[in-house]
Simulated assay, not measured.
Amino acid sequence: IRESDGVAVNVSDGEILDAMRLLGRTQGVFGEPAGVTGTAGVKKALELGLISPESTVVSIVTGNGLKDVESGIRAAGEPLVVPPDMDALLSAFAEAGIAP
């Protein structure tokens, strides 16, 4: 970190769960907690002004959320259970207030 004039931030479990939700809602990525910790750090560094909003940043998600479904449920709530039918899916989305 010193050699590259970098910075490090720490993130809480809550910030990691927030990053899980953020990635799911904005990118369609279901990452497990360890895999999204870097994204949580990028978000916090942005909020702290350590990264400019105009910067281009890459955050690699290294683990699939299916490795830790319990944390996914803690982050986003129980999944919708929908029969394999497009009309049923669209109806469930409408009931949940989700725009397709």
Rank of each mutant, 00 (worst) to 15 (best):
G31R: 02
S55E: 14
V29G: 04
E54M: 08
S59D: 00
V81H: 14
T56R: 11
M20A: 07
L50W: 01
G72V: 06
G65W: 08
G97R: 08
A40K: 02
P100L: 03
A76G: 13
G63W: 06
L46I: 11
I51T: 02
I1R: 02
I98P: 06
V42H: 00
D18R: 02
F93D: 02
P83C: 00
V9S: 01
V69L: 15
T26F: 09
P79C: 11
E47I: 01
G63F: 06
T56D: 12
R25H: 13
G35S: 04
V58I: 14
T56Q: 10
N10F: 11
A92V: 11
T37D: 00
L66N: 09
G31Q: 03
G24V: 00
A45E: 04
L90I: 10
L23C: 14
L17Y: 08
L23V: 08
S71R: 10
E70G: 11
L80K: 10
S4Y: 12
G24K: 01
A40W: 00
V57C: 04
E78S: 14
S71W: 01
T26Y: 09
A75Y: 07
R2S: 11
G63H: 06
L66C: 08
V9E: 06
V7C: 08
A88M: 11
L22N: 13
V69I: 15
G41Y: 10
S55F: 06
G28L: 13
L23W: 07
I98Y: 03
L90W: 04
V42M: 05
E78Y: 12
D18V: 08
P33F: 02
T37C: 13
A8R: 08
I51R: 01
G38W: 05
V36F: 12
I16E: 03
N64Q: 12
L48Y: 01
V29C: 11
A45N: 05
G24Y: 14
T37G: 03
D5L: 12
P33M: 01
N10M: 09
G31I: 10
G97M: 12
S4W: 08
D85I: 06
A99S: 15
V58C: 10
V11A: 05
V42S: 02
N10S: 14
E54I: 00
I60S: 09
D85W: 09
G28V: 13
F30K: 05
V81I: 14
A99V: 15
A88D: 14
V29D: 05
G28W: 13
G41W: 00
G49M: 04
D18K: 04
S52T: 06
M20S: 07
L48R: 13
S12F: 06
L90N: 11
A99H: 09
